[in-house]
């Protein structure tokens, strides 16, 4: 069922691409149309293969490989991880890159079993590495954190 869903989604995306680029000038749409139609053809093969029931021994090798894929983890574990990964963006927006990334490392390490002392050391090392490596070394200018006016106040 999962295979049918992602194959159909791929088919739909390629179909939408073809519809969107259909009216572009030929020079702008030539390769896009070729790739779009190729995608439709190939994902149709995948969809048809899913609709037609296959005996276990006749299943293509890639399907067997997907089942023991190391990325095939339960969704209830992946979703909290997604929260952790996405949360770094608002954090660097709000408090800035150097404090944001070091705060992120400190919090993640502490909440996943690290000791307070080692979490603080990890956060400080990250802050120093960003400051000396990127700000001083490369002269990188980070955007002003959104919370800066409030922090000043």
């Amino acid at each position: 069922m999962t295979n049918l869903i992602h194959s159909s989604m791929a088919l739909m995306i390629f179909a939408v691409v073809v519809i969107l680029v259909w009216n572009y000038p030929p020079a702008a749409s030539r390769l896009l149309l070729v790739m779009g139609f190729l995608g439709i053809f190939l994902s149709s093969i995948l969809v048809l293969r899913e609709i037609r029931p296959l005996r276990k021994q006749d299943r293509p090798e890639d399907e067997k490989r997907v089942e023991d894929n190391r990325y095939n983890m339960p969704l209830n574990k992946v979703l909290p991880t997604t929260f952790w990964i996405v949360s770094i963006v608002p954090l660097v927006y709000l408090v800035g890159f150097t404090p944001g990334i070091s705060l992120y490392t400190l919090t993640y390490y502490k909440l996943h079993g690290g000791r307070w002392s080692s979490s603080i050391v990890a956060g400080l090392v990250i802050a120093a590495a960003i400051y000396f490596g990127f700000v001083q070394g490369m002269g990188l200018i980070f955007p002003r954190p959104l919370l800066l006016p409030f922090l000043r106040w």
Binding site: A10, F14, L31, G39
Partner: peptide, 8 residues
């Protein structure tokens, strides 16, 4: 499919 998606 992956290659075609990359080109697009």
């Amino acid at each position: 499919i992956a290659g075609a998606a990359g080109v697009i």
